[in-house]
């Protein structure tokens, strides 16, 4: 967006030496986000590895969702929002003006806090993405994509006899898995999840967590969560955000057992947030 050459050099100078074992799928260098005058996200640098789950934790308003929404440029829909810095996926700058944001969002799927199935049939919900991107050449290919996506999302067995029923008639947990199936159907590389279980009961939550665990061998999953237990259960790496800065990032076990930063220590022991 507002990347001048000088900015870019500066961003690269500030970037930390990456220590992640696997090659990074998503990389952020000196990312700042402003909502009007408000500086919502400050100098975030992080490398997110492919084929694994990374969780963002932190108190409300710390910027973790804001950062998540930068990765598929959903913040573009908010007119007062301004993003600076460099975010790359597979070393490609996603804020490059030459990049088609529609194509980007096909590569970076997103699951929202509140299940938001379209008020269409279960089939049409999953088929929506493949249809607009022309992923299927005929009806049987589309059927295959829908079936495969619902299977991957662990919903096939529950809905296979009522694919023409409305997606909004499902239970909350089923709706959320439908949204995950819908995201998977366009064959993304990265899946962003913004507190996907916060509106669900514990049983539905457990199902989604199992599903996330199943999906991580094929996708780069980034999940924002308020529940530290959930972060500990599903993610391999964890990043802790506080007041718009990324305080600490590392393997989940290390973050929860021996964090380097005092603020992380305070947060995970429940002293604030």
């Amino acid at each position: 967006m507002d990347m001048t050459v000088a900015n870019r050099i500066e961003a690269e100078r500030l970037a930390p030496v990456t220590t992640a074992a696997k090659p990074a799928k998503v990389t952020a260098k000196d990312v700042n986000v402003y909502y009007g005058e408000k500086h919502a996200l400050k100098h975030v640098n992080v490398d997110i590895p492919d084929r694994g789950v990374m969780s963002f934790i932190g108190p409300s308003g710390c910027g973790k969702s804001t950062f998540l929404r930068c990765i598929n440029r959903m913040n573009d829909t908010i007119s007062s929002c301004k993003v600076t810095g460099l975010i790359t996926i597979d070393n490609q700058d996603i804020y490059d003006p030459a990049l088609d944001v529609v194509q980007l969002r096909a590569r970076v799927g997103m699951v929202f806090q509140k299940p938001n199935p379209f008020p269409k049939s279960i089939y049409d919900n999953v088929a929506y993405g493949p249809r607009i991107h022309g992923l299927a050449n005929n009806k049987s290919e589309l059927d295959q994509i829908v079936t495969a996506s619902l299977e991957k999302a662990g919903l096939w067995g529950e809905v296979k006899d009522r694919l023409q029923d409305s997606g909004t008639g499902l239970s909350g947990g089923q709706q959320q898995r439908l949204c995950i199936a819908r995201a998977i159907a366009v064959n993304p590389e990265v899946i962003l999840m913004d507190e996907p279980c916060s509106a669900l009961d514990p049983i539905a939550t457990a199902k989604i967590e199992t599903l996330i665990d199943d999906l991580r061998s094929n996708y780069c999953i980034i999940i924002v969560t308020h529940s530290m237990q959930q972060a500990a259960r599903v993610s391999q790496r964890t990043a802790f955000f506080h007041l718009g800065t990324l305080v600490e990032e590392g393997p989940t076990e290390q973050i929860f057992s021996m964090p380097h930063d005092q603020r992380t220590q305070d947060y995970i022991t429940g002293r604030f947030g």
């Binding site: 598929n72 959903m74 829909t77 529609v102 980007l104 969002r105 799927g109 929202f112 929506y128 607009i132």
Partner: peptide
């Protein structure tokens, strides 16, 4: 949230409105 869902799947604005 419905618009966000369509945008996040890579729909353009007019596709989102129409569909």
């Amino acid at each position: 949230s419905l618009r966000d869902g369509a945008f996040a799947l890579g729909a353009t604005k007019s596709e989102t409105i129409k569909q």
